[in-house]
Nucleic acid binder design. Structure first.
Length: 269
DNA sequence: AGCTCATGGCGAG
DNA sequence: TCGCCCTGAGCTG
């Protein structure tokens, strides 16, 4: 689930459901219990995302900082809420809505200053209007690191995860092992613009789809793909399956403890 | 019941 | 680079 589009969608959902309303705050699992008691029945004044970080504002009391990590999940909907299970770290509740958070890497009450420090260590986010791709470029064009590793480095660019990384490199025909410093400014600007568009659609649909209209199953006469992550993609988790464009077997390799997927024929630049 | 894997990230060495 | 943290689904037996 959680790449940047998921978190921005969550921020939007929290604003629509709970903004400017007092909310009941609880921690059935217990690890957020002290902070939950402080926040209980206070008004949620803001909800904001930067990359994969979610911030829920409670006026002068500060912010709930949430990072889902690899396993974290949010379940939200209209009341009545389901019975809380003992893995629910955080439950938010008002008359109309509930939000259950399970398995996050981070769920902590932080100050404005601590929040500012988090923004400072994150790179620009294609989903934050006004964020500047040049800040990322300043790191990329001097780096000997592979473009595949740079795209997952949240200090370089915030919000891209393993799916968007694989897919955007495919869409631009870029070999994932190319060094950042071998990228052109034109290529980087195109990647950034493409990520912004793809991730915006991801927020809208709450899933990742990256296949262009002309390559859809209907156009190509192939079977639609069904996968856990729910979207239609070119290479992600398609190891050894034929490339939708050229038929070459999709390759996979470990890179910085994550699985990388690419088409060795289509991605040679 | 126990293993493996997953769209993430941190700190130790 | 490795081990570790958070949880749940989908296998295996």
């Amino acid at each position: 689930m959680p790449e940047g589009h998921t978190i921005h969608r969550l921020a939007q959902d929290h604003r629509e459901r709970l903004l400017d309303r007092p909310v009941l705050v609880a921690s059935p699992q217990g690890r957020f219990a002290d902070s939950a008691a402080l926040l209980n029945d206070q008004v949620m004044t803001d909800a904001e995302a930067h990359g994969k970080h979610l911030f829920l504002g409670f006026g002068p009391l500060g912010w709930i900082h949430i990072h889902l990590g690899l396993f974290g999940k949010v379940d939200l909907g209209d009341t009545p809420a389901p019975p809380p299970t003992d893995t629910v770290r955080l439950r938010l509740l008002d008359a109309d809505s509930y939000v259950d958070l399970r398995g996050p890497t981070t769920c902590a009450l932080i100050t404005d200053a601590e929040k500012a420090a988090i923004h400072d260590r994150l790179g620009p986010d294609p989903l934050r209007t006004g964020d500047d791709p040049d800040r990322a470029w300043q790191r990329i064009y001097r780096s000997r690191t592979t473009v595949a590793a740079l795209l997952l480095d949240q200090k370089v660019i915030a919000g891209v995860g393993n799916v968007y990384r694989a897919e955007v490199l495919f869409r631009h025909g870029i070999d994932p092992y190319r060094a950042g410093r071998d990228l052109t400014r034109r290529e980087w600007d195109a990647i950034w613009a493409d990520l912004a568009g793809l991730m915006r659609e991801g927020v809208r649909n709450n899933r990742i789809d990256t296949v262009r209209q002309e390559h859809t199953p209907e156009e190509m006469g192939r079977e639609p793909r069904v996968d856990d992550h729910g979207g239609e993609v070119y290479v992600y988790r398609r190891a050894a399956m034929p490339c939708h464009i050229c038929g070459t077997g999709i390759r996979t390799a470990g890179l910085a403890a994550r699985n990388l997927f690419w088409c060795p024929t289509c991605q040679q630049r």
